[in-house]
Structures are given as structure tokens and as C-alpha cells.
Design a binder for these strands. Structure first.
Length: 304
DNA sequence: TAAGATAAGAGGGACAT
DNA sequence: ATGTCAGTCTTATCTTA
């Protein structure tokens, strides 16, 4: 590999010379005068397209690839080049040269060929598709990657299916970030049986000591309401019902989706909206019977 | 046709053996 | 480790308004 170096002419933070260079292959910026390397990475997931001066405008494609936990090497693809020169451009001494040769060998060997990394790449080729299908945010994907990495480190993948564990990590990430996705949502998209995902999920909780917040029925409620196209008024009514139910402590151990669906249905009834249980049940992903049961419980407890 | 009722069955947590 | 128990949710079927 030949180092392609672009002189962007900006000022080095250490020696002050206008000699900052960019390695075009890796996106790293360093000073040609003193060897100072900029270590901070821009906290953005997309390429930097803005330009502030003519110089920058001319080579605005220079920035490195975005860094992400969802890449097998977190996007930090620093490669030891073949130039055999140090940062200032001077040739290396003979002993240093052989040291670098050795490093280069292991550098390239350790990149993709380790089984853990292969595993990871395989797992995350699916993740992009799932992200779109389930309309997930980048934060959830990052969290998934983080959890999956931890599971990998603990050797939990051995003897288990990769998609199963990935689905479990994804579900855990949703729970953790308060994104209302059910086990059913995840498992149906990834084509794994619900109970398998569920088993893996519990395994993750146990082995990684994860603490998951209980799913907020109110978040579920908003999701169902928008899916079923319910009015703002009904939503507010359901919100009040859920708050009351929370105070009466009748929400523990109940499926939050079922609870939210029942609150919405109750709110529809009291507000005189004509909606069938079937519509809400479909939007919530629970059965009509579950809605009925929760509905009955809510009515009795709240004396409506 | 929507809503209510009932029963059988699955999956998992708590607890005792 | 294994079995039992209470509780929840789902599926299926029948009845009621």
C-alpha cells in the first residue's frame, strides 16, 4: 500500500507549523513536522461534508469512514503501510524495519481472520436489514452491537445460533433504550421462534448481569395509538387511565402492550369513539381476549 | 358482526424436595 | 437437578346482543 498523503495545510496543534497531513487511506490526520497525530474523532456517524475554506472544499471527501460498534473492527481500520518511513518521512533503521514487518504481518492477520471477527461480521450483515424493517435508531443498533460483543467475549455464542443471540441482543437494546418493540416484533422479522429469542434474552440478562427497565406501557400506548390511527383525545384519556392504574399497583406482571391496548380501548369507549377490539388488538399485537381481560380489570379497579 | 365467556394449553418464575 | 404450583397469555369455540 502506498501512503497517499494530502497536504491540507492546516496548523499543527503541537508544533504550530502549517503542516498537517491526512493519510487518504485511513483518514488519520497527523503533522508532517513533528509527527503529532490527531486522536479525537469527530462524533458524527456520517462523513463530514461541510467545508469552511477553499482548501477544505477541494478535498472534502478526505474524511475517514464513520466509526461504529456495529462494524467488525469498530470502523477503526488503521493499516500499517509499506512505506517504511516514519511519520516525518525519514527512512526507518534496519532493526526498526524488521520490527515493523512483523507488526504488519500480525496486523493484517488479526483483522478479519479471527473467528470472533468472522462471527461478528456474519451477525451484523443481518443487522442493517433489521434496522430498516423495525425502524430502529442508530442508538439501538450501537447498543445491540455492544451487548453482542459482550456476549461474544463471554463465549455465550458457542453452541447457539448467531441470529438467535443477535435477536436477543437487539431486543435487549430496545428494552434498554425504551424503544417499544416486542419480542414478537423482533422474532418475526428475524425468522426465529419467539421462545428461542426469549431464551437467549434471559440468558443474556443472567450472564451479563444486565438490568432492564420495565417497558413503559405509556410508550406502548403511543405506538398502538398511532398505528391504529386514534385521536389525541383518546390518547390523553388512555394516559390518565394508565397513570391511575400505575398508582393502584395493578400493572405489575401484566403485559404492557395488553395493558396499553386495554387502556386505549377503555378510553375509546368512554369518549364515545367507535372502534373494535379487533383493530386495537391487531395494532398492539395481542389478542382480543387479552384486551378483554385487562379491560375488565381496569374497569373494576378504577370503578368506571 | 362485535363482544363476552369458557376451556385447554404453553412458557416461565418461585419454591420445595 | 427436578417437580409442582399459581399466575399470565394465547388459541379455539360457543353464546349473546
Amino acid at each position: 500500500m502506498v501512503l497517499q498523503i494530502l497536504n491540507t495545510g492546516s496548523r499543527c496543534a503541537r508544533c504550530g507549523k502549517n503542516s498537517m497531513l491526512t493519510d487518504n487511506a485511513t483518514g488519520e490526520r497527523f503533522c508532517g513536522g513533528c509527527g503529532f497525530v490527531i486522536s479525537e474523532r469527530v462524533e458524527e456517524s456520517g462523513p463530514e461534508w461541510r467545508s469552511f475554506s477553499k482548501d477544505e472544499y477541494d478535498d472534502r471527501s478526505r474524511t475517514g469512514s464513520p466509526t461504529s460498534l456495529a462494524m467488525h473492527d469498530m470502523g477503526l481500520a488503521t493499516i500499517i503501510g509499506h512505506a517504511n518511513k516514519d511519520a516525518t518521512g525519514k527512512p526507518l533503521s534496519a532493526s526498526m524495519k524488521s520490527t515493523i514487518e512483523r507488526l504488519r504481518t500480525w496486523d493484517s492477520r488479526s483483522q478479519v481472520h479471527e473467528s470472533a471477527d468472522r462471527n461478528f461480521r456474519q451477525a451484523f450483515s443481518d443487522l442493517g436489514r433489521l434496522k430498516d424493517k423495525l425502524a430502529l435508531s442508530d442508538a439501538v443498533i450501537e447498543k445491540t452491537a455492544y451487548i453482542y460483543r459482550k456476549a461474544l467475549d463471554k463465549g455465550l455464542v458457542r453452541g447457539r445460533s448467531i441470529p438467535g443471540l443477535l435477536a436477543a441482543a437487539l431486543y435487549a437494546a430496545c428494552r434498554d433504550t425504551g424503544t417499544p418493540r416486542t419480542l414478537n416484533d423482533v422474532s418475526s422479522e428475524i425468522n426465529i421462534k419467539r421462545k428461542d429469542v426469549s431464551r437467549c434474552y434471559r440468558l443474556l440478562l443472567r450472564e451479563l448481569d444486565l438490568k432492564m427497565p420495565v417497558v413503559d406501557p405509556i410508550k406502548c400506548m403511543s405506538r398502538i395509538a398511532s398505528e391504529a390511527g386514534l385521536s389525541e383525545k383518546v390518547k390523553r384519556g388512555a394516559l390518565a387511565i394508565l397513570n391511575d392504574a400505575n398508582k393502584m399497583e395493578i400493572t405489575a406482571g401484566k403485559d404492557p402492550m395488553g395493558l396499553a391496548a386495554a387502556a386505549l380501548y377503555l378510553s375509546c369507549v368512554t369518549n364515545g369513539e367507535n372502534i373494535t377490539q379487533k383493530v386495537i388488538a391487531l395494532a398492539a399485537g395481542v389478542t382480543e381476549v387479552t384486551i378483554r381481560n385487562r379491560y375488565k380489570g381496569l374497569k373494576e379497579s378504577l370503578k368506571i
